[in-house]
Amino acid sequence: MSDRDMVGRREFLAGAATLAAGATLVGRTPAQAVPVAEGTVKFPFPTGRRVRVLVTGDAGTGTRTQWAVADAMRAFHDREPISVALGLGDNIYEHGPDSAADVQFADKFEHPNAGLDFPWLMVLGNHDNSSVLAGDGGWLLRGNAEVEYHADSPRWWMPSRYYSVRIPEHNPVVEFFVLDVNPLAAYVPPMFSPYWAADGQFMTEQAAWLDRSLAESTATWKIACTHHPYLNNGPHGDAGHYEGLSIEPINGVHVRRFFEDHVIGRCQFVVSGHDHSLQVLEPTVTSKGTRQIVSGAAAKTVGAEPRFTTSAGHAAVFENYHELGFMVLDLTEDAVDLRVHTVDVATGAGTEAFRRRLA
């Protein structure tokens, strides 16, 4: 075991003990949201009725591939200003941050995204919650450092582990529901506290909040933002069949049930990362008309991984497993238009690979 893994194991056990002893709940739910620190000025949310959304995920490597995609996003933003971004998890590879003061926030978020000066609605991913092994999702307390970072960054928006944002605030065109299903999807399921269990306090409160928030929302478009997808043609697979496994709960069966009980048929779109690919799937009877979009190719491509295969075979209007890229959603009261841009690593140039009106 490496030194980093040994440290990770000690921190994991210490974190579990702290939670068992009654650690603070600040930032875990919208009711305990982290306030913005004095002296920090957040980039403002748009107030108009046309909203241009950058959709990107699995970016936080700090490598030249992340910088190449960021270069292409900057070039797009210079031509067509972006209103807000969705950062769909795995924000800090490979193990997540050690604290809210971790230099990785600068190296893997602030510096690569310089000039992309608008709010970034951030989602927690499995790598952001690593314990012993990178991406195992087994130390959920680690993700709280990303919530705490909300206090100090003009760009980074994550006041709690799950939350919603209406744009504009009054009579909204869109409401984004940022969800945290990591307790249900962890490769190392929560063992030390019932708080994180599938039927525990955290997920029960999140489900009740989501049901209430969706019922009260007056937004024309309701978009669920998650790291783990509900449907996925890439190798990570669908919820309930993650990694092609039949072993519960690590196959994501609880994730599937959460989506089906609280999201599907209530939101027009689910946008996710996790799979390092670009996918625009067709809505189905099973998904109750909700369309799954996967944008997780901001720094890595799944097609470059050993033994790459696609999986479920869901009908798709666009799929790309071999190129880096990002997506852009243009939202008005009357329409949703999607563009997919692929990126050349060598030059940082983006190319529009797909365009479609989705609604």
Score class of each variant (00 low, 15 high):
173 V>R: 10
120 W>A: 06
189 P>H: 06
42 K>I: 03
60 G>L: 05
67 W>A: 09
118 F>R: 05
188 V>A: 15
359 A>V: 15
15 G>H: 09
34 V>A: 02
109 F>R: 02
15 G>P: 07
274 H>L: 06
335 A>R: 13
153 S>M: 09
217 S>V: 00
343 V>N: 07
42 K>Q: 06
170 H>Y: 05
182 N>L: 10
14 A>L: 14
343 V>F: 09
299 A>N: 03
322 H>G: 10
254 H>D: 14
81 P>W: 02
155 R>G: 04
98 D>A: 14
255 V>N: 11
73 M>Y: 02
136 D>I: 04
223 I>C: 11
277 S>K: 07
154 P>H: 09
67 W>G: 07
93 Y>Q: 04
105 F>S: 11
324 L>H: 05
213 S>V: 03
30 P>K: 10
348 G>A: 12
335 A>E: 14
179 L>F: 09
317 V>D: 14
202 F>V: 00
296 G>K: 11
268 Q>R: 11
109 F>N: 05
170 H>P: 01
252 G>N: 06
202 F>K: 09
317 V>C: 08
295 S>T: 12
266 R>G: 14
189 P>E: 04
95 H>I: 06
345 V>E: 15
181 V>E: 03
45 F>C: 00
266 R>N: 12
97 P>W: 02
218 T>A: 14
225 C>G: 04
40 T>A: 06
86 L>R: 05
104 Q>I: 04
205 E>K: 09
5 D>S: 13
246 S>M: 09
91 N>L: 13
191 M>D: 12
98 D>Q: 11
72 A>S: 12
182 N>E: 14
105 F>I: 13
15 G>W: 01
83 S>W: 10
312 A>G: 07
303 G>R: 00
54 L>I: 05
159 P>N: 07
8 G>K: 05
241 H>V: 07
75 A>Y: 02
326 F>V: 12
41 V>I: 10
250 I>A: 08
332 T>W: 10
237 G>T: 01
104 Q>G: 03
